[in-house]
Write a protein that binds this DNA or RNA. Structure first.
Length: 109
DNA sequence: CGGCTGACTGCGA
DNA sequence: TTCGCAGCCAGCC
């Protein structure tokens, strides 16, 4: 299997594991998927799967907690509303990373 | 075939 | 502290 397919498979697998009420970052996903420097590819992959309700893409934010992917949801506020309905707190337009950051766990493939 | 873009990030000036 | 840039690389002209 090609590296790119393997990478996207891992990325999607990790996204599915993000617990409700938590978020993680493109960088952490990329690192766990085996390509630390390809955080940008993570967003690219999510974009190609957007609309697929099997994955909680709204739980992926940038390293500052900003909703950099909100433009890709049906409405501009959809992403923030989904997160808030899961109990996530915001400081302005950014997720409170200090209490909601979830880091992919190596014990939980 | 070549250039540009993008749901990002870390580092150096 | 803020700002620019290289690295990443699959798609779309």
């Amino acid at each position: 299997m090609s590296n790119s397919n393997e990478f996207s498979r891992k990325v999607l697998e990790i996204v599915k594991q993000i617990p409700k009420g938590k978020v993680t970052t493109y960088g952490h996903i990329a690192e766990k998927a085996g390509a630390r420097k390809s955080s940008r590819m993570v967003g690219y992959i999510l974009n190609s799967y957007k609309g697929d309700e099997r994955y909680p893409f709204h739980r992926v934010v940038n390293r500052l907690g900003e909703l950099s992917g909100k433009q890709h949801f049906p409405t501009p506020n959809a992403m923030k509303e989904m997160l808030q309905s899961e109990g996530i707190n915001f400081k302005d337009e950014a997720v409170d990373m200090k209490s909601h950051l979830w880091i992919p766990d190596f014990l939980n493939e």
